[in-house]
Write a protein that binds this DNA or RNA. Structure first.
Lengths: 224, 224
DNA sequence: TTACGCTAAAATCACGAAATTTTACTGGAT
DNA sequence: ATCCAGTAAAATTTCGTGATTTTAGCGTAA
């Protein structure tokens, strides 16, 4: 069925399906179904699911197959908080290390994003347009930390971002688009090239904090 | 040969070998060799190596198998810097959230560690003692971030710690023990329960900064 | 009606082997 | 002596199958 010449593609295809909310949280992802659907062997599909489970997009249990990770507020909170940390640190380093080229890239990424956000504006999201928006949003956040010169940080951010997205999708069936995002992205775009680290970090937290269940704990004994 | 009832064990066994410096950096890890050595099938060993590659302990290339990640100062620097960031953030949160129980655990972990460090002291490290020290050191650093209440942060730290360790081992054939570590661990133990976040973070950076190739970039425009 | 146990269907898991690709080796030519 | 091509060996990757385990369905008894 699917040309087997590109196993990377099979991985990406299944990954996309796990991220699209096709399966409910906790629901079994049957290797056998996918196997016959894609016309590949058991080993192949099993391998793909295994790889996806090690990056946190599927849960694996011995002899009981694969499942979509359970939806939980704790996990959503945890992922959101960690993503805030990563993007704040990545943005700080990018501000320190990034030059004009980075500022230009960020501006360009935001331009594309805001263009799409303009189209999405009022109406209920057309699925293909929503996919475009999703990609543009990811690109903007990736560019934000893009000049940090840490491959490890970027790779970790990629993993967390995917898990975070999966959590949200399983919660409300689609990667939520909210109008206030427009202003928040704009605010970040203004703070970063101005090289105001603290303001940028504050706006990153502001942008993502609606996914937090409780506020991030304050310093003990107040700010000194 | 190996009882197949425990694939987790096979994973751990291979992982240990990748972390022990048995293979040189960049060297191929032949699935076929391991397959015949452990007497398991190709799929099984392939699965294990895939899992190890997604946690960064092996590199995978299509049709070209698995290799030990290349040793490079850039990668070492990157891992060290990210590990500093993770432990600082984890320690900050632990200081804010941890109670007496956490302080007691940290004290206990340090006690065990310093006991072993006392034995290692002068002599060239006996391999089994070095293994004990390695485990105790990991336990201390894990406890340091143990009260942060973020499973994601802890899991990420575990991954980075392993990759970091692998980098060091492949450099000089063993996980280096240095006498100055004793004083640095002591210093961290004193700062953390005193709930001095900044001092704790400074001492974490001090402890790990010898693995940095260059200093972590300062804020642009100086501290405000 | 509900709960329990038995049976049948289905799925997972590991193996062995075929097919494809890469790697190593040898021989010859410049 | 070096470089290149052609061939042989080895390793990777996929597939199909059988054994084991889980899951679902059904009938019976309380």
């Amino acid at each position: 069925m699917v040309p087997q010449g590109d196993p990377q593609s099979l991985y990406e295809q299944v990954k996309t399906r796990l991220l699209t909310g096709e399966f409910d949280p906790g629901q079994r992802v049957r290797a056998e179904s996918l196997r016959s659907e894609y016309g590949v062997s058991a080993s192949t599909i099993r391998e793909v699911l295994f790889r996806l489970s090690t990056v946190g997009l599927a849960d694996f249990q011995e002899q009981r197959g694969f499942r979509i990770p359970l939806q939980s507020l704790d996990r959503q909170h945890d992922l959101a908080q960690f993503r805030i940390f990563l993007e704040q640190q990545g943005a700080r380093l990018s501000i320190r290390l990034g030059g004009v080229a980075w500022e230009a890239q960020l501006s360009a990424a935001h331009h594309k994003l805001s263009h799409i956000e303009g189209q999405v504006a009022g109406q209920q999201p057309d699925p293909s347009l929503l996919a475009l928006w999703t990609a543009a949003e990811l690109d903007f956040h990736r560019t934000l930390i893009g000049a940090c010169e840490s491959d490890v940080l970027k790779a970790t951010h990629g993993m967390i971002y995917d898990q975070f997205r999966q959590q949200l999708i399983t919660v409300d069936r689609k990667f939520v688009y909210l109008p206030q995002n427009v202003a928040q992205h704009q605010a970040i775009l203004e703070a970063a090239p101005a090289k105001d680290e603290d303001l940028t970090c504050a706006r990153i937290e502001e942008h993502l904090s609606r996914h937090l269940v409780r506020p991030i704990p304050e310093r003990v004994g107040g700010v000194r």
